[in-house]
Design a protein around this nucleic acid. Structure first.
Length: 558
RNA sequence: GCUCCUGUGGUGAAAUGGAUAUCACAACGGUCUUCGGAACCGUCGUUCCAGGUUCGAAUCCUGGCGGGAGCACCA
């Protein structure tokens, strides 16, 4: 329909002699203005030397001819907009898609056949998963689902730092405390904090940790038969710590309904990274400086960063290069999206710049999206200092509050996860989220449970009615009906922007419109019960699919 | 100092360059013999400052001011 309007307007404009006018066919913010608004008259006014209203009237006539019965009203409004209201049967046809084919409702084939890998969450073993990783997990999962609605085959992966200074700090502290059998992930997390503090406070500890860091790299580099006893013990402790951390991550992923196809680790990609960077050094992509291998980003207006340290260990950047090659060798992809905190944006640009000199095709299909920093009201958190709120603590807290209102533990968890995810997904990426741990997560108003509750009430109606839902043109199109027909367009927009908040904002508006409808209209026992039930049905399918896109569970009861 | 992000009612957010800037929380007032009150309806109150581009600016550009992040051997 949008295409049809656009074509008609373009034709009319060119008949008037206007060329290359850029105009929009958009959804009016105010629903009473209709289903579409065209601003072409305003845009063409200057070029044609005519007042907008005069042009708008010509467009109005052209659109009336082009759309015929499809539009119930076409009028010139405001400063020169042409507003189009679709007829009942057109809307009814769209609603029919929502009613009869819910599994397809909202989907498109913009990326059909494409393989898209999405990397997100990425907590580091040996540290506890904190709220920042929770953000990445929730956003990444939603982006993955939104991408799946474009017909793409999505591959999810998480990448974790299981080697490097932070690991050495944790291992050092475990040894210090003579712990050979760590039992909980918390124990590992505390060891890390202890090691990190010691690293800053004690010169002796710093030296020992630095040595341990190099030792671990060496041990991992060797073939298993060649290890000394010392190395074998170190590796054993390392493996236990890593497994413990991973198990605790998986537990959180189960709660959040995220499943990764791949877990990549720095220890797997280190060797590749070093090889590729050294190869790049020979080709002049990298330079040597003060014993380190660096990429001089200044030539492209970026920062200069170290890729291999003067001690010979690779940094984050070199490992990322290794990861890119590691993935490329094993998995066929058409695009790779990496989701991280925005504080890594600068590093990612340098990494991508270096990669584009080494492997331009790989670099070209990679893109980086980021979320704002999550700050506490108590200041920036740092896992080094241990003043973090862990993902688990936050989940537990929200769950407790949800439990106060829901005796059923399954429902309580669904509500808790919904509240948490919605809080994260409702705002556009970029800005930082200030989280006050004292204040409660909303369970009312602009919140996840508001969406869930709207859905539950709608389902109840369908269950209670004994009439079969049936769409008909007879129903005067309501704001609710119009809003539902926008869903596929909303999904498309969310895909273009990789923005779950587009979906979240839409669903709130939809739920609000539904609640008004519910409060004002009698459904069961009304004259047009069958038609209204069909509308309810289409609302349910839209809300279900929308919640799925956000990764928010849909409770049966609450 | 340099680079990037950011500034919208008391608070948290929304708004492909469009019409009277939209929600929620808080505050205040209403709705209940009704299909579920985690709801609905109403009142109150907002685009950091100064220029510029444009028919039209919260949005784009320039310059200020405020907040955050990054900036060589951490990730």
């Amino acid at each position: 329909m949008e295409e049809k309007i656009r074509n008609a307007v373009e034709q009319a404009l060119s008949q008037m002699g206007a060329k290359d006018i850029s105009f929009a066919v958009e959804w009016p913010a105010d629903m009473t203005h209709g289903d579409f608004a065209v601003n072409a008259a305003l845009a063409a006014s200057k070029q044609l030397g005519k007042p907008p209203h005069e042009i708008a009237e010509v467009l109005q006539t052209a659109l009336i001819n082009a759309l015929g019965e499809d539009a119930s009203r076409i009028e010139v409004a405001g400063p020169g907009f042409v507003n189009i209201t679709l007829s009942a049967y057109v809307l009814s046809n769209i609603l029919n898609d929502a009613v009869s084919a819910p599994e397809l409702w909202g989907k498109n084939d913009a990326q059909a056949g494409k393989r898209v890998m999405i990397e997100y969450s990425c907590p580091n073993p040996f540290k506890e998963m904190h709220i920042g990783h929770l953000l990445s997990t929730v956003i990444g999962e939603s982006v993955a689902r939104i991408t799946e609605y474009s017909g793409a085959h999505v591959l999810r992966d998480s990448y974790g730092g299981d080697v490097g200074p932070h690991v050495a700090k944790a291992l050092w502290a475990l040894r210090e405390k003579n712990i050979t059998e760590p039992a909980t992930s918390r124990e590992i997390g505390e060891a890390y904090t202890h090691g990190a503090n010691a690293y800053e406070e004690s010169e002796k500890a710093k030296q020992e940790i630095d040595v341990l860091n190099v030792e671990l790299y060496k041990a991992l580099d060797k073939v298993s038969g060649d290890h000394t006893d010392e190395e074998r013990m170190l590796l054993e402790l390392w493996r236990k710590g890593r497994d413990l951390a991973l198990e605790s991550f998986r537990e959180i992923y189960r709660t959040l309904d995220t499943n990764f196809d791949y877990y990549f680790f720095e220890s797997e990609v280190t060797a590749t990274g070093v090889t590729v960077v050294k190869d790049g050094l020979a080709k002049g992509v990298f330079e040597e400086s003060e014993g380190a291998v660096i990429y001089s980003g200044e030539k492209k207006g970026l920062h200069t960063l170290v890729f291999i340290t003067s001690r010979g260990t690779p940094t984050y950047e070199a490992k990322d290069i290794g990861l890119a090659f590691y993935k490329e060798e094993r998995i066929e992809t058409d695009a790779i999206i990496i989701e991280t905190g925005s504080e890594q944006t600068g590093h990612f640009k340098v990494f991508l710049s270096a990669l584009s000199e080494i492997a331009p095709l790989v670099a070209a299909k990679m893109s980086h999206i980021s979320h704002g920093l999550l700050t506490l009201t108590t200041g920036k958190m740092s896992s080094r200092k241990g003043n973090v709120i862990t993902a688990r603590e936050l989940l537990t807290e929200v769950l407790e509050r949800a439990t106060e209102r829901n005796s059923d533990p399954v429902v309580a968890q669904q509500v808790a996860v919904g509240a948490l995810k919605y809080m994260i997904l409702r705002s556009a990426p970029g800005g930082s989220i200030v989280f006050d741990p004292e204040k409660s997560l909303a369970l009312e108003g602009d919140s996840g449970p508001y969406l869930q509750y709207a859905l539950v009430r709608a389902r109840t109606i369908l269950e209670k009615s004994e009439v079969t839902p049936e769409l008909s043109d007879a129903l005067a199109p309501s704001a609710l009906a119009r809003l539902i027909t926008r869903f596929p367009g909303v999904v498309t927009k969310a895909q273009e922007l990789s923005g779950p908040h587009i979906i979240a904002t839409y669903l709130i508006q939809l739920a609000s419109e539904w609640n008004s409808f519910y409060a004002n209209e009698r459904i069961i026992g009304s004259e047009d019960e069958a038609v209204k039930l069909a509308l309810v049905q289409s609302f349910i399918h839209t809300m279900q699919n929308g919640l799925w896109l956000l990764g928010i569970p849909a409770p049966e009861r609450m």
